[in-house]
């Protein structure tokens, strides 16, 4: 049984009275521990697919089953609990809370947890060490570089040990070297913790890290390929 199962999912946006189909009928299954790269041209529907799988964006029709739970049948509050237990998010714009230090940002998802303040602090320190930023735990986001901010965002995404990490172009606003460092970090998390990673990306370098690549075009899955670096690189050129 697949860990994530999308069944007949569609997403239609209503823009100024006109219906725009962002995602046509889509079926997709993802196993636990996969590192999936979601690629496609701008406006192809890859971010829509990511946010639907990330339980942030209810589909117009269809079902999302994660770990045997029909997620969109849950009410908003239950879905928030589900997100807390199962998912971590990393955004292209990092979206760190500007008024919190690195360690405070990492502790935000734990604010409603059963952990004591001391435990929360220890957990946050552990993940900050994992991403190599323990020495900057008291810095505000504005005092960090783009790559460092993204590392904090990753630490925030993994602090409650989620089964799935969703990343929306996490290297999109970083230079190549920093981008590669971030991708290495994701790969390490994938391999050491067996966390499922689903990443929207434009970066061809990602393909050498991902175990599977799904290409979307015009709201339809155009190709779904298991990792073969050279083959995937040629696939990307077609895109």
């Amino acid at each position: 049984m697949a860990f994530i199962n999308l069944e007949n999912v569609t997403k239609i946006y209503n823009l100024k009275g006109a219906n725009v189909t962002a995602l046509q009928t889509t079926d997709l299954t993802i196993n636990q521990g996969e590192f999936l790269a979601l690629m496609g041209p701008s406006g192809s529907g890859k971010s829509t697919l990511l946010t639907i799988m990330g339980t942030l964006n209810p589909p117009t029709s269809g079902r999302l089953i994660i770990d045997d739970i029909d997620v969109y049948q849950l009410n908003q509050e239950r879905r928030a609990d589900f997100r807390y237990s199962y998912t971590g998010f990393v955004f292209q714009q990092m979206h760190l809370l500007s008024y919190l230090t690195s360690i405070e940002n990492v502790m935000v998802p734990l604010a409603v947890s059963k952990y004591s303040r001391k435990e929360q602090y220890f957990m946050a320190e552990t993940v900050l060490e994992q991403v190599g930023l323990l020495n900057k735990k008291h810095r505000l986001p504005k005092e960090l570089s783009g790559g460092e901010q993204q590392r904090v965002a990753i630490a925030r995404a993994i602090v409650n040990k989620p089964a799935i990490i969703f990343a929306d172009e996490p290297t999109g606003s970083l230079d190549t070297n920093t981008g590669n460092e971030i991708l290495t970090l994701f790969k390490k998390l994938n391999e050491t913790n067996n966390q499922t990673i689903i990443m929207v990306t434009h970066n061809p370098e990602t393909l050498s890290y991902a175990s599977r690549t799904v290409v979307i075009r015009d709201g339809i899955i155009d190709s779904d390929t298991l990792s073969d670096k050279e083959y995937l690189c040629s696939e990307d050129r077609e895109v």
């Binding site: 942030l56 928030a80 809370l97 604010a111």
Partner: peptide
Amino acid sequence: KVDIGVLRAVGLRRAH
């Protein structure tokens, strides 16, 4: 709004 989106995305309930 964005801060609130982040809080909701990391699993905080609407009530939180």
